[in-house]
Simulated scan of single mutants.
Amino acid sequence: MALGLATGSTQESLYAQLVRLIRQRSIDVSKLTTFNLDEYIGLGEWHRQSYRYYMHEHLFKHLPLSRQRLHVPDGLADNPEKACQAYSEAIRAAGGLDFQLLGIGSNGHIGFNEPYTPFSSRTHTVALSDQTRLDNGRFFSAHSEVPTHAMTLGIQDILEAREIMLLATGRHKADTMAQLYHGDANEALPASALKHHHNVTIVMDREAASGLPEHMQNANPRTR
């Protein structure tokens, strides 16, 4: 099985629960293959703010996973564009993603696909928006330390996953989730590309769902 994984504070409790369940049920994960959504350009795997480091701390080091099967874009690649192409090809060679986990940015980005990223995009480099750098600045000691560029799985790569789950928590995501619920698929809101997928589950807490119609706030919404 090939899993597409995401990072961020929203995912931390999920990974903790996943580790607990795998250990309790003695699930064999030795042949599990993972592909992370993104990585900052310029940060190596042992930089504390790199996504490879995040995954090591929150998931990889807690399970008997094969390192050769754990894929995260190389933020220190000599040729980032070539590395991006190879990353999409590696996913296809693995048979595609069986499951993709997503978070969502306050501007609607999934992965680091910023607004107006073509829905047809493959893994690519991206200049991070001011909003994204501001949102992620809380993880760095100074705004000047926040990387300006990243590598990210493309929207088309994401949409080719057989199943997708998006998690959203916090009132600061409420406006974005309301736009996603009410609007049509539009490249101005990258997450709206999920409306083109046949098997998407969206999980929100009450705060993130507070901008939705009242009957939806107490439901388990599923978008198709």
Score class of each variant (00 low, 15 high):
T7C: 10
R138L: 08
Q131E: 13
Q156T: 01
D38A: 00
K61A: 10
H149R: 12
I41K: 06
Y53W: 09
A86H: 12
V29G: 08
K61I: 02
D98I: 06
S26A: 15
G170M: 09
T148N: 13
A6R: 01
E214C: 06
P221G: 06
S66E: 14
E39Y: 04
S121T: 09
A193C: 15
A150G: 15
A93R: 11
G111W: 09
K61E: 09
N36F: 15
Y53M: 09
R69W: 04
T176Y: 01
Y40C: 02
F140W: 10
A185R: 11
M1R: 09
V203E: 14
A174N: 10
G42N: 08
S144F: 01
F139L: 12
H109N: 01
R171E: 15
R48G: 03
D38K: 00
K31C: 10
G170P: 09
I91T: 07
M1G: 11
S88G: 12
A94S: 13
Q179I: 04
R133V: 02
R52E: 13
S26P: 03
L159K: 08
P73I: 03
G137K: 06
N113L: 02
A2M: 11
N36M: 12
R206M: 07
K31L: 09
A16D: 14
M177T: 04
S26K: 14
L212W: 15
Y40K: 00
P115G: 04
G105R: 04
L21F: 00
N36G: 10
Q49H: 06
A188E: 13
G154W: 02
H215F: 11
H197Y: 05
T223S: 09
A168S: 13
G170T: 07
L37I: 01
L97H: 14
T176Q: 08
A193F: 05
A188I: 05
R162I: 12
G105V: 01
Q217P: 05
L194M: 12
Q217N: 06
D205I: 02
G42M: 09
